[in-house]
Amino acid sequence: MSEAPRGQVVRVKRRHAPLVVIEIDGEQVEAFAGESVLVAVLAHRPALRHLEFSGEPRAGFCLMGACQDCWVEIEGVGGARACTTPVSAGLRVSTGWPRFG
């Protein structure tokens, strides 16, 4: 268990939506349209964002829009809460320190 997991969350239910291509920190990955950005990122990555004050990795916590620990940058939008934001084709998400548009 010592090496970093490929992704944190695991999809266990069949999707009935098309696979679309999104970009995470410039890397193209596939995700299902309509699932949450949190799932799309954490299915591939061990973390969603890095805490502004310590740089520590974070991957959300409450998963229901309350703890605000899953804010990511989405190009053209700005900050967005990953657990309540649905994925659409071409979405570009950054897990780093917020960049300005």
Partner: peptide, 25 residues
């Protein structure tokens, strides 16, 4: 409790109900 992979219990259930996902293997 702030490590990636640590989640609220209700949240773990919500991820399953809402996204058909588990918080880990």
């Amino acid at each position: 409790w702030t490590l990636p992979g640590a989640y609220a219990l209700g949240g773990a259930q919500t991820l399953l109900k809402d996204q058909g996902c588990l918080i880990g293997r």
